[in-house]
């Protein structure tokens, strides 16, 4: 007789109880986690109406505080950049003297189109979705596209002057 290999009634029931308990714990954990996941309603939903596309200058950027971002011109297009640094979420200010984005927290630097130039950031600056309504640009701050991977810059705009943040990063 191979009694030891057989699943006894007692062993079977023990396993069923254990499996039931485990299932309940897993269901509880998943429910709790799902409960805490932010709903779509908690993202920034208010559309921000800004200026007409042709009002965005070819140099420099336009800060849109309500949308937490900047408008900047890429050829004929106008793009909206999120001011949240892709590195660790600090606000990236525009530096007038050097004409680039410079993050004071950890020293990430981006050009006018939010393309990576220096520092610890793992990608380009994130972009916000824009539409044109009645001739005005409307930014949707809840619709964020992560910036592209690091690569060569597509515009030739070297730092125009001294940087706002200290060197040495």
């Amino acid at each position: 007789m191979t009694h030891n290999n057989e699943l006894s009634r007692r062993k079977f029931l023990t396993r069923m109880w254990a499996a039931g308990g485990g299932l309940m714990a897993a269901a509880g954990a998943w429910t709790g986690w799902d409960l805490l996941r932010p709903s779509a309603a908690s993202s920034l939903t208010a559309q921000v109406k800004t200026l007409p596309p042709q009002a965005v200058p070819a140099t420099g950027v336009v800060e849109i505080k309500a949308a937490r971002g900047y408008l900047t011109r890429e050829g004929d297009q106008v793009i909206a950049l999120s001011w949240k640094c892709p590195h660790l979420g600090c606000r990236v200010p525009w530096c007038e003297s050097s004409q680039e984005f410079e993050c004071p927290c950890h020293g990430s630097v981006f050009n006018r189109l939010g393309e990576y130039r220096a520092g610890p950031s793992p990608r380009n600056m994130d972009r916000l979705a824009t539409t044109v309504v009645d001739g005005s640009l409307v930014i949707d701050p809840g619709n964020v596209t992560p910036g592209g991977p690091l690569g060569p810059e597509t515009i030739d705009e070297p730092p125009a002057g001294p940087r706002c943040i200290g060197e040495g990063h």
């Binding site: 505080k65 937490r68 600090c90 606000r91 004071p104 927290c105």
Partner: peptide
């Protein structure tokens, strides 16, 4: 203030 990151942070 989400619009101003203190420096240094």
């Amino acid at each position: 203030n989400p619009a101003v990151t203190p420096n240094p942070e």
